[in-house]
């Protein structure tokens, strides 16, 4: 009896030692030499693996980051400047600070302003609906509200408002990774400068139709009248294909265009309430 136990212990011990040696040799033989800084860089990254930087996950970013000559060309939108500074420190460089960005939904066509003219009945996918038809309103550029942007957001930062049926970006949660920008088949969402204290101004419309049809389809459409272009003291606004666009790098947030816009298509975000005198419509849409 005892001899059986001893034999068993011996055999298993020998087997264990033998296998350990084999494992060690194999590990030596197939050792992968890797830059240790990759792990360090990866450690300071947010670990969201969102792909917002353009690399496959945070590991991919870290691998590219230690190799690149120009770290200025790389940016982690989720971690922002703090993360980039830390990551640059790891490899002994300094990162230039970049302006924080945010996803902006350039459509204000809630059912109140933009009448539904047909009813969609199919799979809930903006991409599919876009391939099928122009949309359930008279505006072929506007938001379909089927939530492709919501589905791709890894940060739970964009939701469809049940009343306006439009996506609303959560300022706290949005990391400007750009996933929704790519997902939107109508190209409505844009990454724009978040602005000082979150203050920003943008044209919340991408309708390229002429004024008449645009206005007919949606009360808050940009009708391409060009008043904002004329009033802008900083030449930040351009008008192309009946549509105004504000260059966020030139905009000085003077808000003159907001007052001038006859349809309320230009929105101002996070500004303190104005003194009375401005008409009601702009106020009602600027509170989101």
């Amino acid at each position: 009896m005892n001899s059986i136990i001893i034999t068993a212990i011996l055999v298993l011990s020998l087997l264990g030692v033998a296998l350990a040696v084999v494992l060690y040799l194999v590990a030596q033989r197939f050792k992968v030499i890797e830059d240790p800084r990759i792990d360090l860089v990866e450690a300071v990254l947010p670990g969201a693996n969102c792909g917002g930087c353009g690399y496959p996950g945070c590991r991919g970013f870290a691998e590219a980051f230690v190799k690149t000559d120009d770290i200025g060309s790389m940016f982690c939108p989720v971690g922002g400047n703090d993360t980039m500074a830390k990551a640059a420190e790891v490899i002994g460089q300094t990162a230039e600070a970049k302006d924080p960005m945010i996803a902006v939904v350039r459509c204000s066509g809630s059912p109140e302003y933009r009448k539904r003219v047909v009813e969609y009945d199919g799979a809930s996918s903006c991409k599919l609906a876009t391939a099928l038809y122009s949309g359930d309103t008279g505006c072929q550029y506007g938001c379909l509200g089927l939530g492709d942007c919501v589905a791709v957001c890894k940060f739970d930062a964009i939701h469809i408002d049940p009343v306006t049926l439009l996506p609303v970006v959560d300022e706290e949660k949005c990391t400007a990774c750009g996933a929704c920008v790519k997902a939107c088949p109508k190209f409505i969402i844009e990454l724009r400068k978040k602005g000082p204290k979150g203050k920003r101004i943008y044209v919340s419309c991408i309708n390229k139709d002429k004024g008449g049809p645009a206005r007919k389809a949606c009360q808050v459409a940009c009708i391409g009248c060009g008043k904002c272009v004329k009033v802008c003291p900083h030449e930040a606004i351009t008008l192309e294909n009946n549509l105004a666009y504000i260059d966020y790098n030139k905009c000085k947030l003077c808000r003159k265009c907001v007052e001038e816009c006859p349809t309320g298509a230009i929105l101002e975000i996070n500004f303190p309430p104005r003194k009375p005198k401005v008409e009601g419509q702009t106020e009602s849409v600027e509170n989101n």
Binding site: A123, S125, K127, L128, A131
Partner: peptide, 12 residues
């Protein structure tokens, strides 16, 4: 099920 809807999407 919207089989063809999603197959179309996949084709695109």
């Amino acid at each position: 099920l919207p089989l063809l809807d999603y197959i179309r999407l996949g084709k695109t």
